[in-house]
Nucleic acid binder design. Structure first.
Length: 594
RNA sequence: GGGGGCGUAGCUCAAUUGGUUAGAGUACCGGACUGUCGCUCCGGUGGUUGCGGGUUCGACCCCCGUCGCCCUCGCCA
């Protein structure tokens, strides 16, 4: 073969190419040796084409060569396109009408037997993730991973198109920045030029985009890598990608509307799904009450109800004392759920009870309703009237189950939120919902939460989030009542975006820092450049960041973030392929003064 | 750091709950086959049961330790 370079791609040839001499480059997807004849499926990113090598007297070497091929060898094949024998066409291949009668083959590279199969078959278990991450270059040859990378490309393309059409500017911001100890743990980079000093890799471009607004760039966006040195989860990597955007002279609705249009386009193009606009909005308070979560999965019911008023009037001491101490009693009603849980499961130490306890509950109370009466041990504390009231409130039928929690409001909400997700799994409520997407804006967040570490308050979103204008006086009198102009986007129980209108008044910013327990000196030291910039004619502005990895997960239908990242880290933040992080040469450390 | 699950052939999994030679499918190797397309058929190689220790007449199985992977709580303004 004079020139091994391809004339066509492996997904390209059709019946109208019959008779043409072509060259294909690709990998051996499968190999079927057959006596005097070999069938090869040659694969590239664009498709698969069948190659036939026949033993002939004129060219015995070619057949001998092909006889030794293995899977995943990289080949250049020259040959003539010919029709398949009548009735032997393969409708599963886009090139299935034809095949290549090989006249010459060059081995571009051999491949040892792969440690796992690159070809996927329906219903077949994938190899373990360890080995696939270690040989990620082979794993990425799999069709489903190819598809998710293409999906991410499409996602990025839609975003750039949509935002460019609306006068957004894509601006890059530094990776080497200033450490700000609030928020997540920073990844630090030592400075060689300034021994003892460190850059921090960005947790997000938050401050830079605000500065860009102050500079007058009005609409900004960036598909930005963000880094946080925190423990990993199925939907969390130490480095991840955000669509970061910011707009000037806008209020909350302007940002939400802009993102709604983008979300609609993304779902249409990536999934062919029409999202109805506007996206539903729910207050943080309502989400915590009804779903026990700030990222509720609203694709199924099992909503939480507050029974505090009812519990107050019962003779059950556990409930009465809880209410008297300012706690709440809340419950989930599970229609026809009684038979699914044995009393042993529900009793202290039982499987279901333990889930509640692990989520923070002191204990799980429960009531089954069978043979027209409540059972469960605690029913004896409830009068006939109380029982009737309970029955009426939920419309309880025989076979139903109630799970009740008495605890501080936050604990009760969180425990029942966890139970709710557990119940959804037990009852398979999400089966068949793979193609349903529930989008939800969470709004009306409190600006501050009490600091569990004993300080005064911590910011719910971040310290630059603007309070509701009417609440500004409360910054001094009662910060816990201040509501933020912040919003989160939730899809199917995943937090996929969050943002806020920012503070553009340096006086308000100073007050917020004060609520957070920062002295003016500390605020000046950490964020002096921002406070200073705010004084220089800062426009009202706000924005949002979308977690694109999670968007890709939802669009790809996977629960594993590693499935949508080309080269992900494992749960201990190690790159299984390169081995990073690794020790470095002493000289490197010496140069850095370490 | 805490809780849970897992670790057996290259890969996916079994092994009658402590019983004698650790099996199957697949992959791989050899052989047969000119229309296959997850080819088929015949034969074969392949195991420190993650690692170390202990209990026992006997350990893949039980105990202790350790390593690794996954899920999760804490953490993620």
């Amino acid at each position: 073969m004079q020139d091994w370079r391809r004339t066509h791609r492996c997904g390209e040839l059709r019946a109208n190419h019959i008779g043409t001499v072509v060259r294909l480059n690709g990998w051996v997807n499968s190999y079927r040796g057959y006596g005097q004849q070999v069938f090869l499926d040659l694969r590239d990113r664009f498709g698969i084409t069948q190659v036939v090598v026949e033993a002939t007297k004129e060219n015995p070497a070619l057949f001998q060569l092909a006889d030794g091929f293995g899977r995943e060898w990289c080949l250049a094949v020259e040959g003539i396109v010919r029709p398949r024998l009548p009735g032997k066409e393969n409708p599963d291949l886009i090139t299935g009408a034809i095949e290549i009668e090989a006249t010459s083959i060059q081995v571009l590279n051999q491949c040892p037997t792969p440690p796992f199969e690159v070809t996927e078959f329906p219903g077949e278990e994938l190899a373990g993730e360890d080995i696939r991450l270690e040989k990620r270059y082979l794993d990425l040859r799999r069709l489903s991973l190819q598809k998710t990378l293409v999906l991410r490309h499409t996602l990025n393309r839609i975003i750039r198109e949509y935002l460019s059409e609306r006068d957004f500017l894509e601006v890059e911001t530094p990776l080497l920045g200033k450490s700000t100890p609030e928020g997540a743990r920073d990844y630090l980079v030592p400075s060689r030029v300034h021994p003892g000093s460190w850059y921090a890799l960005p947790q997000s471009p938050q401050l830079y985009k605000q500065l860009l607004m102050i500079s007058g760039y009005d609409r900004y966006y960036q598909i930005a890598r963000c880094l946080r040195d925190e423990d990993l989860r199925a939907d969390r990597q130490p480095e991840f990608t955000q669509l970061d955007l910011e707009m000037s002279f806008v209020d909350q609705d302007d940002v939400l509307t802009m993102i709604e249009g983008l979300a609609q386009k993304i779902f249409k193009v990536c999934r062919g799904v029409d999202i109805a606009l506007p996206i539903r909005r729910m207050s943080y308070e309502e989400a915590m009450l009804r779903y026990g979560s700030d990222k509720p999965d609203t694709r199924f019911g099992l909503e939480i109800s507050d029974l505090s008023d009812w519990a107050k009037g019962t003779d059950f001491r556990v409930f009465k004392e809880a209410i008297a101490a300012g706690s709440v009693v809340r419950a989930i009603h599970i229609a026809q759920g009684a038979s699914k849980f044995s009393n042993t499961d529900l009793k202290p130490g039982g499987k279901t009870s333990e889930i509640a306890v692990n989520a923070g509950a002191k204990g799980l109370a429960w009531l089954k309703y069978e043979d027209n009466k409540f059972l469960g041990g605690i029913e004896k504390f409830f009068s006939a009237d109380s029982q009737a009231a309970l029955r009426d409130q939920f419309g309880i039928q025989n076979g139903d189950l109630l799970l009740l929690i008495a605890d501080k409001e936050e604990v009760a909400a969180q425990v029942l939120g966890t139970m709710r997700l557990h119940l959804a799994q037990v009852f398979g409520l999400l089966q068949g919902k793979e193609n349903s997407f529930d989008l939800l804006w969470l709004v009306d967040f409190p600006s501050f939460m009490p600091d569990p570490q004993g300080g005064r308050y911590v910011a719910n979103h971040h310290p630059f989030t603007a309070p509701r204008v009417a609440d500004i006086p409360l910054l001094e009198s009662d910060p816990s009542k201040v509501m933020a102009r912040a919003y989160d986007l939730v899809i199917n129980g995943y937090e996929v975006g969050g943002g806020s209108i920012r503070i553009h008044d340096p006086a308000v910013q100073a007050k917020v820092f004060s609520v957070l327990g920062l002295t003016p000196e500390q605020a000046q030291e950490k964020f002096g450049f921002l406070l200073d910039a705010l004084k220089h004619g800062a426009p009202p502005h706000g924005g949002i960041a979308l977690g694109l990895d999670r968007w890709a997960m939802i669009l790809a239908g996977t629960a594993n973030i590693r499935d949508v990242i080309a080269f992900p880290k494992n749960q201990r933040a190690r790159d299984m392929m390169t081995g990073a992080p690794t020790p470095v040469e002493p000289k490197q450390l010496k140069d850095l003064g370490l």
